[in-house]
Amino acid sequence: MMTKNQRLVYIALLASQAVVISLLERAIPFPFAFAPGAKLGLANIITCMALYTLSTKDAIKVVIIRLILAALLGGTISTFLYSASGAALSFIGMLLVKKLGPSRVSIIGVSTTGAVLHNVGQLCIASWIAQTWTVLLYLPVLSFIGILSGVAIGIVANYLLSHVEKLHYYRDLQELNQI
């Protein structure tokens, strides 16, 4: 069991890590010349971790804090709109996929869903702003990169998560010993 303070600190830690990751990612010069606008979506790692270690309510808090802080630290209204719509859609998708249960789907499927739906959400907003739905024709290129980075992030999150679980386990044991 996590105490209330532990949970608060953990949420804040995850959110701040996500903000730092998304700021770092913004600083990387664009790596794919053939797909302008594509991003790796490294902050997805944190969303996966939050989904697998926190309750749904707390995971939503992490995502919202990340969105607001990343927008305040060097975003504009339009980039906030894009990332918010992408994040909302990808979070809902990840939640639904995760509902399939750990015996059927691993964190790789969850993170890939998140990556692709993030692109879908952003393109929907872009096509709404540009008032032409042909923007969606750009989806295959983006989701190709999204699937690749989603699989990679899933593997990374898999490793990280096993370690985090161990940390929880050790911390619980230490608490028991202290009492």
């Binding site: 691993s106 499927g109 890939t112």
Partner: peptide, 11 residues
């Protein structure tokens, strides 16, 4: 070992 069957279906 990490990849489960539904992962592939989803992708």
């Amino acid at each position: 070992h990490m990849i489960k069957r539904w992962d592939i279906i989803i992708i």
